[in-house]
Design a protein around this nucleic acid. Structure first.
Lengths: 207, 207
DNA sequence: CATTCAATTGACCAATATGGTCAATTGCAG
DNA sequence: CTGCAATTGACCATATTGGTCAATTGAATG
């Protein structure tokens, strides 16, 4: 990352990052417009390139920032000693919602980087880092206590149902918040509604 | 729709439609490129505008084509006398998979039209038609036999779980097919795997 | 073969957008 | 005031935009 970025005002830096995430997530590396980014961030063209030198520099700075942020949050908030997959996945979803509220398209962005075609991007992103992300996602569903499930049900299918439900639930929450008046999320209400799904799963899938 | 389009060769017409759906779905009306469309369709610039006169004409032709196609398929293949929501939604998913195999981004496209910001598009798409689509989606989950569910479970939540599971399952099937070698979908296998999820739900949610 | 006419092409247009530069201005600390 | 960093935006060559149209092709007809 460019030395110039270190001394940046924190609020301004976050704003540039947020705007850049949205632009890269929506249009991919090649078709993302630095003109659009500076307009949305409310800064001049010159200043952006003063901080980041090139489009590539901006991209890799933002990408590394996102990967670090996601990893840090997951490590801090997911209790790997918790062997009940319902709790583990519910907490993962809460982390995703929190992060998405700060940077609405952060997960679209990192997911899109996987399938980026531009050579400039492929050279920018180390294979190691890509693999590390896949690893940490896998970690989220390891060391699970499968004995909690009823003997007669298909556990692999049940887990898919749980994962998909929590993903869709999170997406629903976020789409509701982005639309009307921009009131903050009520995490208490979200947690409470998520728990009604956990209750359903516990009644149906667990012993 | 422009009279010229009537006499078009069917295969060529479908190709133009398919390519246009993808471009409009990916980039929206304003940022969709007619240059990209003609390149992908393997025709000349002049020919596209010979058939459709303007970008608007192409867009509205493709949009109406999609809406008609989806409505026709749903009416033909969904049995509204079937009051078991599991069967009804499973069949809806199968229709979506079939249509998506022919036009991979057709549902992304029609969904995106709802949130189009360009005035040119808003004037092109009649409010009536938009409402009709919403209506037919609502019809898909009316006249359901709720007495099949166990008394003690939250039926509304259970239905959401079912809908979300089938949507995610369909998306998974389609993402697998688009990636590697482009072999056709095995509908027998898809139906069979979908039925394992129905079985799970029947065991857990139904009396 | 010549004639006709529809199907099809792609060079071309003015307008706009692209990533990136840099001399000039602003703002603030000493 | 000086000095230096932060910040600006007009400017550049190049590429892309939706759309045009005179010219070419292909096939059917007499």
């Amino acid at each position: 990352m460019h030395p110039k970025t270190i001394n940046m005002d924190e609020a301004k830096k976050n704003n540039i990052i947020s705007v850049s995430i949205n632009e890269f997530a929506k249009h991919g590396y090649v078709n993302a417009s630095t003109n659009t980014i500076v307009k949305a961030a409310g800064i001049s063209k010159g200043l952006l390139f003063h901080y980041f030198a090139h489009k590539q520099g901006l991209f890799s700075y933002v990408y590394n920032y996102c990967v670090d942020l996601i990893a840090t949050e997951l490590i801090a908030k997911i209790d790997l000693n918790q062997r009940d997959i319902l709790v583990r996945l519910r907490d993962t979803m809460l982390v995703k919602i929190e992060l998405s509220e700060k940077f609405p398209q952060i997960f679209d962005f990192v997911a899109r980087v996987y399938v980026e075609e531009a050579d400039e991007v492929k050279n920018l992103i180390s294979q190691k880092e890509q693999a590390a992300i896949a690893d940490s996602y896998a970690t989220l569903i390891t060391d699970i206590d499968y004995s909690l499930f009823k003997a007669e049900i298909d556990v692999q299918k049940a887990i898919k149902v749980i994962i998909w439900t929590l993903e869709k639930f999170g997406a629903e929450v976020l789409s509701q918040t982005s639309d009307p008046n921009l009131k903050d999320l009520d995490y208490q209400a979200i947690l409470s509604e998520a728990n009604t799904y956990l209750k359903l799963f516990r009644e149906c899938f667990y012993k």
